[in-house]
Write a protein that binds this DNA or RNA. Structure first.
Lengths: 343, 343
DNA sequence: TTTTATATACTCTATTAGAGCATAAGTCAA
DNA sequence: TTGACTTATGCTCTAATAGAGTATATAAAA
């Protein structure tokens, strides 16, 4: 972990640029393959794809990371697109800025005394089948990093088995009564415990809570703390990349509902079930099939192609649809409505 | 305008920090006074409040601007809160990061050859009556910068009188037929022209469109272009601050609907009409009074205080309410629902 | 032919949005 | 004191939508 060098900033040095700020661009590149949501992962930060500014020898999963070069790029987003293009075989259609992270202490190993890394997180969507991967560069499963976020088959066991226990311990460990109440309500809110409904968009809140409660590995790593109980649900990532991924997941889950971004994740021609499974993969719960059809067809976002499709499995072949790009110029805010269903 | 010094970046210099990146924090500090939405404005960038890193002698309205000093602040938000506290008498309750802007060419006068300014925009809400102002520091009116955004008294005349004309000219000036169609649909979508409903959240889209169509002063300034027609609706701002303000307005208008942020803008005790007028000021259109009451009361977000209030005007005195902070720990996503009304 | 699996059409109900009407409780002026 | 005026507040009505279920169609496989 980095200890900040004391700065000699004063009134005469207003620029405060001497600390050596580096702007890094972290990309959460998302695709859905075989109905499973994936993130593009780079293993080990010294890998070619990781053009991270402060090379490290640490092992672990990381988001692809590129520097922002103000001399070459007019906008930050153009910087991101440029290095994604240079460094990966991917062509993201949709790109959106997520958040700018500048926390000290969350960047174990990435900042040093001379450079403070501020990273701008981006979300990029792509539909891509054939990207060759190896043990250094691969498509990681969303839900291997966030197993508690996948409710497609009902409430994940890890919540009841591990998280609720850990949170209970965390609540009990509060020093004052007020703190205890506060922790309990926060835990209930985040994880939908006390009759409170589960809000699939609160991905970041839940991760932050687990971090605070020291139930994820990163918290233990960053704070250099030993704990007597080991509850580390989900695969961890280097730096604060899991937090950035959480931000991306929450944002995407929200966006899906009022913008036609799903279509960036499916091939040009798709069946409605395929579309539904893709949405389910992202939002993390099952949907009511008939209603999904009705809403999508009724929204004018898709149009049927006079061909048919079968293969997929025994059963009546499904009609193929394509996205009507023109809706963007018709409706104010089209998106996918979802009625949950756990049947 | 800044011409970028050519960078000597190569494989050995991966840091790309040599360009001298400066991170500035721009704050859109919002309050509502006398039912009018306000922004905290600093006049002239060399003013004491403007601790901008690249002093300039330009005159004009600017957002308060402070540097991010990584040596002193653990997080960017803490940096923002710190300098707002140091430099202004304001105490924002709610603070939210908006976006990180790094456009070259949009920063007329702010970047130079040695420093590239990347600014992180923040939205801050406050309720404050007595902040003394002068001609250098004052509360500026939202709608003086964005007159086309105020639909509280119906469709603003400036749209029909000035903007539609200018957009029509811009559409006509397109070189190809496709470009013409594209421009037309974009203009229709943004300004709700061809039966398309007005979307109050598209503040940024509209400003960007006007910028592209060179109907706002900043576009002419940045591109150093002379035009034969002068259509410059709304008061301009220095740098790209009007764009940041547009981002803030859009974000706040959206947030209002699913988070209880209005309460940061009203005093601890308020009448429902006061609350309604505050919401109307932000979203920019009138609301149906009875429905507003029903929705707010029914949401459990407020509780009545057994006192009464009169003064305001002749008429039946209104009950006073206060915000129930606990809803945050009860409901997943409380916010103010709005049914428009132009009566 | 029967079974199985998926696609697709249609129905029903509770809730909510959106708009309007009616009444209550004050002020103000003649 | 009375009536006009103003704002607050309670209540009703209707159309649209969400959410869930039932029924039928079309294919492959047994």
């Amino acid at each position: 972990m980095t200890t900040a060098s004391s700065s000699k900033n004063d009134k005469t040095n207003r620029a405060s640029g001497e600390a050596g700020i580096i702007i890094g661009l972290s990309a959460v590149i998302v695709a859905v393959q075989d109905n499973e949501p994936k993130v593009f992962i780079v293993r080990g930060a010294e890998h070619a794809l990781s053009v991270g500014v402060v090379p490290t020898n640490e092992e672990g999963d990381a988001l692809p990371f590129g520097p922002f070069d103000p001399a070459r790029h007019d906008t930050i987003e153009m910087g991101l697109r440029a290095w994604v293009k240079e460094q990966t075989p991917l062509v993201p259609g949709y790109v959106e800025q997520l958040y700018t992270f500048g926390n000290r202490g969350r960047y174990a190993g990435q900042s040093d005394e001379f450079h403070r890394v501020v990273s701008v997180g981006y979300l990029a969507l792509t539909y891509q089948e054939g990207v060759k991967t190896d043990d250094k560069v691969f498509w990681g499963d969303w839900y291997s990093y966030f197993p508690w976020e996948d409710w497609r088959l009902g409430k994940p066991k890890i919540i009841s088995d591990v998280i609720e226990l850990g949170l209970k311990r965390w609540v009990a460990a509060a020093e004052t009564k007020e703190e205890k109440t506060y922790r309990r309500t926060r835990a209930d809110l985040c994880f939908g415990l006390d009759n409170i409904p589960w809000d699939e968009e609160k991905v970041l809140d839940r991760y932050e809570l687990l971090y605070e409660a020291r139930l994820v590995y990163e918290a233990i790593r960053d704070k250099g703390i030993k704990v007597d109980y080991v509850l580390v649900p989900g695969r961890s990532m280097l730096y604060d990349h899991r937090r950035i991924l959480a931000t991306a997941m929450g944002r995407l889950r929200g966006k899906l509902k009022y913008r036609p971004v799903v279509f960036e994740l499916v091939p040009p021609e798709f069946t409605l079930l395929q579309l539904q499974k893709t949405v389910e993969a992202i939002v993390g719960h099952a949907l009511h099939k008939q209603n999904f059809r009705r809403l999508v067809e009724g929204s004018g976002m898709v149009e049927e192609i006079p061909g048919k499709k079968s293969a997929e499995a025994g059963g009546r072949p499904a009609a193929l649809f394509r996205f009507r790009k023109s809706v963007v110029y018709e409706r104010p805010a089209p998106g996918v409505k979802l009625s949950p269903s756990f049947s």
